[in-house]
Design a protein around this nucleic acid. Structure first.
Lengths: 140, 140
DNA sequence: ATCTTAATGGATATGTATATCTATTATCGA
DNA sequence: TCGATAATAGATATACATATCCATTAAGAT
């Protein structure tokens, strides 16, 4: 449903948001979120390039949020991590110029739109502050 | 969002439903739905094994629906084609026994559930009969 | 019986996502 | 200036989804 990469990115940004005062190294994030370190580094690079996080090299370096968690949507994170959720723009069979999608692809695209909207609404701060009895990332 | 395989399977079952009177060969279906023939054969095999379609070898053979289109949901097709849409059952970090998911995975799982429900509601007959101005599969 | 048609099953190829490794570059502290 | 830390970049490895190919099996037509 969402890629492994996107799931890792979400964990990382949530963890950074939970520890906003000091930069978190890829090593730290990887350990706490159970993500392979080398792979997480790549993902953090993507998020830095997308402007979600700021990276800092050297001692005391690591990653911090580039803007308030309230202003980062889940969709932002998924889009930064890998290819953004793709709406169906035109008929995948590509036969001819249609005004709209056929019912089959309309149904699928509507579902995609629902997800996209839900992830656009949700921001990281709300996620981190929300309490449903379990702290985000399942830490104790 | 849905795999290429699932998209192909949907096209195939819709095409069969549009031509219910005679068995459709993999060759015919592949041509009309723009799916690679060899690959479609594999997908049709899966759908036959799942009991969605009945296969018949030899001259005049091909594939027919195993039950009325009304009784085949889009979710049935997706599940038969490849791994079913996976809900998040427990914390992917697997740290400890929790009563429920943390807010992060709750959000993602809710989105998955929405999709699953939408695809469970939708049946193939409605899809084939629905007219939004464009015939299913974008044929003219 | 034999020929043709068409699904089946197994092996193989290709592409993309996931993951690892290493050398390099930047930054800090002493 | 030097050593340690940590991100960056590029190359490589692995797994899985997608796709092709071919020999085999089943069924109908003659």
């Amino acid at each position: 449903m969402i890629s492994q990469t996107a799931e890792y990115a979400l964990r990382a940004i949530v963890y950074i948001s939970q520890n906003p005062d000091v930069a978190q190294t890829a090593q730290q994030i990887a350990g706490k979120t159970h993500v392979p370190k080398g792979y997480l580094s790549k993902i953090m690079q993507s998020m830095a390039r997308s402007g979600l996080v700021v990276s800092q090299r050297g001692l005391g370096g690591g990653f911090t949020l580039a803007r308030p968690a309230k202003e980062i949507s889940v969709l932002d994170v998924l889009s930064a991590a890998d290819a953004p959720i793709q709406r169906i723009q035109r008929c995948p069979l590509g036969i001819k110029s249609h005004a709209g999608l056929c019912p089959v692809h309309r149904l699928v695209d509507d579902a995609i739109k629902q997800i996209e909207d839900a992830f656009r609404q949700a921001n990281i701060e709300d996620l981190v502050n929300s309490t449903n009895g379990v702290k985000p990332l399942c830490e104790e």
